[in-house]
């Protein structure tokens, strides 16, 4: 069976301070048609770079190795023209901060229609008609007037809806959403997410959703991939992830969330600081912060294993029994092991 998107052993190197540094290591993940997969992790864990790799939008001199395939076709030998065609028709990205990403000097109507007009030779008036229809679908009233306005005349939430509309207009099979609500007010976040997921589902588009919000990811994705230091450490369904996390990092992330129905004096934290891929020590990237670390963890990189349908990259995944809430293992500092 061919996957819609298949990322296979992807590694990415970027130039910082005049030398190549690893930002992604051996990342493998698939997205099926109409499926939502979330990439969750701390800043610098490589989630955004994974999404940008799919569109070949890495910073200058970035290097990719491994394979990315779309509908079974590898994209790695794409020419610039091939990439343009791919971006124009197959996959489109929603950026984090619409205020920065939507060009402030052009009207909303021009922003929405430029891809249709320039890539598909659509008549401008027809494109504007279509843009107005979609603006109404993403919950913007008075669409005709909005089309003539400039980005600074709209609120952040409105602008992100415009961004969503611009992606829907392309009618891609895959949406890459790079923290689409991080720059918005908490109150508008929920609206924007609901609209995005609703419109996507109606059109049966797949989505790779990037967030650092585990709850949000759990709320509407089919699968969640947890990233740490440029690696994917665990891939699971939301239910399974919450019930029985397999990687100590996932468990620690889940435990450090505040809970609505419980009072906590102090939220558990993960000691140490998040690492970038190039800083990670040989062996398991999480070893320095892991409460279950053993000698083998610094000796070799854990291979990915399949346990109960989940994918995990931990030497001790089979023996550890991890809890997802702090109260479940209160008193036994950091969970239990079967030994």
């Amino acid at each position: 069976m061919t996957h819609l998107l298949e990322i296979d052993h992807l590694s990415v190197d970027l130039v910082t301070h005049r030398r190549y540094r690893k930002v992604l290591q051996d990342v493998s993940i698939t997205v099926e048609k109409a499926e939502v997969v979330s990439l969750v992790g701390e800043s610098g864990s490589g989630k955004s770079m994974t999404a940008r790799s799919v569109l070949n939008l890495l910073p200058a001199q970035g290097k990719m190795s491994g394979n990315i395939a779309f509908e079974g076709q590898s994209l790695m030998d794409n020419t610039n023209k091939d990439w343009q065609r791919f971006r124009a028709t197959k996959a489109a990205m929603i950026f984090q901060d619409p205020r920065a990403s939507i060009n402030p000097v052009h009207r909303i109507g021009d922003f929405l229609t430029e891809a249709l007009v320039h890539n598909r030779d659509m008549d401008r008036h027809e494109a504007l008609e279509r843009a107005a229809t979609i603006l109404e679908q993403v919950g913007i009233d008075d669409a005709k007037r909005r089309l003539r306005q400039f980005p600074h005349e709209l609120s952040g939430g409105m602008l992100q809806r415009v961004m969503i509309a611009s992606v829907l207009l392309i009618e891609p099979q895959l949406i890459l959403a790079d923290e689409p609500t991080t720059a918005l007010d908490v109150t508008t976040q929920a609206d924007v997410i609901a609209i995005l997921d609703d419109q996507r589902a109606q059109r049966e588009m797949a989505m790779l959703f990037i967030t650092h919000d585990l709850e949000l990811a759990a709320a509407f994705s089919d699968r969640i991939a947890v990233m740490y230091a440029g690696y994917i450490v665990e891939v699971s369904t939301p239910a399974q992830l919450h019930a029985r996390p397999l990687h100590p990092y996932t468990a620690a992330l889940l435990r450090s969330r505040p809970l609505l129905h419980e009072r906590t004096e102090r939220l558990p934290q993960i000691s140490g600081r998040p690492l970038s891929a190039f800083e990670a020590p040989p062996g398991c990237p999480f070893q320095d912060r892991c409460p279950y670390v053993q000698a083998q963890c610094s000796e070799s990189l854990p291979p990915t294993q399949l346990i109960n349908g989940s994918i995990v990259r931990c030497h001790r995944a089979n023996e550890l029994e991890l809890a997802s809430t702090a109260s479940a293992d209160a008193g036994t500092e950091g969970g239990q092991s079967r030994e």
């Binding site: 971006r87 124009a88 950026f95 990403s101 939507i102 320039h118 890539n119």
Partner: peptide
């Protein structure tokens, strides 16, 4: 970056 991601020439 946004313009490039939309496949514009």
């Amino acid at each position: 970056m946004t313009a490039r991601s939309r496949g514009l020439s």
